[in-house]
Design a protein around this nucleic acid. Sequence first.
DNA 1: GCTATACTCTATCAAAACAGTAGAGTTAAT
DNA 2: ATTAACTCTACTGTTTTGATAGAGTATAGC
Lengths: 153, 153
Amino acid sequence: MKLSLRGEYALRALLVLGMNTDKEVVRIQTISDEQNIPKRFLEQILNELKVAGILESRRGIAGGYRLKSAPEKITLAEVIRLIEGPLAPVSCVSEKFYEKCTCPDEAKCGIRSVMKDVREAIVKVLEQVTVAQLCDRARMLEGQVANPLDYVI
Amino acid sequence: MKLSLRGEYALRALLVLGMNTDKEVVRIQTISDEQNIPKRFLEQILNELKVAGILESRRGIAGGYRLKSAPEKITLAEVIRLIEGPLAPVSCVSEKFYEKCTCPDEAKCGIRSVMKDVREAIVKVLEQVTVAQLCDRARMLEGQVANPLDYVI
DNA sequence: GCTATACTCTATCAAAACAGTAGAGTTAAT
DNA sequence: ATTAACTCTACTGTTTTGATAGAGTATAGC
Ligand code: FES
Ligand code: FES
């Protein structure tokens, strides 16, 4: 049930980019330093996110990456699906990456029934949370109030 | 976020054993046939479940496996934790298998905050569902009413 | 006691996934 | 022109996964 490091790195990079939407672009080196991610490995991941249309880049000496669309538009679910594949614990309950499994009868499978619930629980969280919210949480944890409205009774 | 085949096989074997609590024991061969699981692979898995105290076995010509405790006592969470390890998507939010990750500051990590929610969602399902309930679902899907009480208004 | 059959234990193995490294190439600001 | 950044493709070592193999041990039934 684990996320690969590749996936974790992708999310952590997006967090950095989300925190720096004021800047034109952020360099790979900066993200790499800030998050302890091997630079050459991170290059691949960011490029993959770019090809997928989540990031855009500028090349050359003042180059770097930035989010292509608003941080509110990018859900963690889509990022993880892109990097990792299915969110579902077994492929036979996956919506986007369905594959039938070796069970004799999918329609009567108790495991499948439970795993559907698990998938739904996971998806519910990850499709709701956007990069913007990820950043809000990070700001909150740093003691900076992200949104004062949260504290109005 | 995927379960390995090993874990899936374990659950499917437990489903069969749960459906056959009336019998003294069930042979590996029977489970293997019923669920399309490679027999020699399944042997290892069942033995692992036995060593962990979830199953018990009888050897010899009338041998086989059965659940050691009541199907209501065995949760899917404990089985998956045994076979697969952590339920959490990243190790830094795992309760039973905690390991710190490469993030610069765990306490201020937005990813970690979200992944905690995901872990909780997964655990909520898998710690609630027992082998008994797994069997109920399977019976339900087969059109047999598992428990007539469910239909009393 | 013998035998057939089932579980037990350890080892091995091929293929895939994972995590990372390397190098040559392209772009663009100065 | 230079330099510092992204780009693209390939490779490599390690670990995990999904098995398979073989020798050994227990037991029911004759
Ligand atoms: S686990 Fe996929 S159908 Fe049974
Ligand atoms: S993901 Fe583990 S602390 Fe950031």
